[in-house]
Amino acid sequence: MFYECILLIRPDVSAKHVAEVTRTIEGIIDNNGGQVIGSEYWGFKTLAYRIEKRAKAHYVCLGFSLSCLDPIYAHLKFHKDVLRHLFIKKPKGLLFPTVQMQSSMGDLENQEILPDLVPEGIDTTEHTGG
């Protein structure tokens, strides 16, 4: 099964250390008979809200195929440098580079990927109270 894993790594660690954390997880995947399909560093981003009193984090995205996630769960659960992680099952396979990287590289035409979902003339602002 294909999975995508997004890691939010503490802001006070260096980029070198982020690469080290990524390499460790890649090593776990390899040791358990999986295959790493893609690995991306999305950058040092500002969080939309504070997590554990931190306003920024390093974002890392890993794409891999693996039969059982337990070894990675066990590794990440008490990892002191990982603020938050998310695994997403991708039954249809993985696409690298991801949209995040493509948009940062400026490859995509915004018009193509962004249809107007809400037609003009419809008021989407919220009405509160009477």
Binding site: S103, I113, L114, D116
Partner: peptide, 25 residues
């Protein structure tokens, strides 16, 4: 709107924001 060919993905923030109000709902 025909968005079948568009991949609705959590990474595509600009697309997601089209479906959110100013307050984030």
């Amino acid at each position: 709107f025909n968005v079948e060919d568009i991949d609705i993905d959590y990474k595509n923030i600009k697309l997601l924001k089209r479906c959110l109000t100013e307050n984030g709902k």
